[in-house]
Simulated assay, not measured.
Amino acid sequence: MKIRCEDIVKRTGPLMYFRNTPLSAQLLIVLLGVAVFSHAFLWNQAFSPAVKAQDKHPLLLSTGLLEAQEAELRIILWFAKGKPQENFLNKLPQEGWVWQESHPANSMSAGYSLAGYTRISQKSEQAVFSWYQGLVQDVGQAGGIAYLDERVPEGMDIAHYALQQNILPRQFSLSESVSSVAGWQESLLPRVVAGNDKVNIQVISQGYGQGRTALAIPVLLEEF
C-alpha cells in the first residue's frame, strides 16, 4: 500500500501544529474551550423550554399584579360522550376539596362533568398547576377536557397580565366595566375553538382594587 505525503499532512497537520505550540498557549486554548463549552451549556439549561415550563405558570397570585393572598380554585372535568370508564373521582385529591358530579338535565345528551372546588395560596400555586398539567393529559386520554378556573375578589389590569404571560389576544370584549381577553399562549395548555379562533387561556376582570378577576384555562365555563 502506497501512502502519499499529502495524506500524512492532512491527517497529522492539526496535531503537529498543536504539538509545536508552546505549553502556555496550549493551556490557554484548553481553558478557553472549557469556558466556551460551559457557558453554552449553562445558557442552554437556563433558557431551555423544560426549565421555563417547570418554573413558570400563569396562575394569578404569583403574577405580582394583585394584593390578594388566596384564591378560589375550580377544576371541571368535562366528557362530551358521557361518563368515562375510568373513575377519576377516586384519583382526585379529597382533603380541602368539594367534588360534585353533574349530568345534563336533557336525557338526550350524554355529557358528564365532575367539578371540584377549593382555596389555594400563592405558595401552593406551582404545585397545583403542575398537578393540573398531569390531570390534563389523563383526562385528554379518556376523551375529556380539564378546565381550570381561578378567582380572586380584586380587579386587575388584564392587558398587563396578557403582556406578562406572552398571550396572543384572539378575542376581546368590554361591557359594564367588565373586560375579557381570550387568547393563545405557547404552552401545553388544553385548547378549544371559540368561533373561528383556537384559544387556551382567558382572563376576565371587573374594576381595579375592589373588584374581581377570573383566570380560565382554556376558557371560562361557569358564570363570572
Rank of each mutant, 00 (worst) to 15 (best):
K91M: 10
L92R: 03
L92E: 03
P93Q: 06
P93G: 03
Q94Y: 03
Q94E: 11
Q94V: 12
G96D: 07
W97C: 01
W99F: 10
Q100K: 14
E101H: 05
E101V: 02
H103V: 14
H103C: 02
P104L: 11
A105Y: 11
A105K: 14
N106C: 09
A110I: 06
A110E: 15
L114S: 08
A115I: 10
T118M: 10
R119P: 10
S121F: 09
Q122E: 15
V128R: 04
F129Y: 10
Y132R: 08
G134M: 05
L135C: 06
L135T: 08
V136I: 14
Q137W: 05
Q137N: 11
Q137F: 08
Q137E: 13
Q137C: 00
D138Q: 12
V139Q: 00
G140W: 06
I145H: 02
A146H: 03
D149Q: 14
E150C: 07
R151V: 13
E154F: 07
M156Q: 05
M156V: 07
D157C: 06
D157L: 05
I158P: 00
I158T: 03
I158G: 02
A159S: 09
H160E: 13
H160W: 09
Y161T: 00
L163A: 14
N166T: 12
N166M: 13
I167C: 01
P169R: 01
Q171K: 10
F172K: 01
F172E: 07
S173A: 06
S173Q: 02
S175W: 04
S177K: 09
V178S: 00
S179D: 01
W184T: 06
Q185K: 14
Q185V: 11
P190Y: 02
V192A: 08
V192W: 05
K198E: 13
I201Y: 00
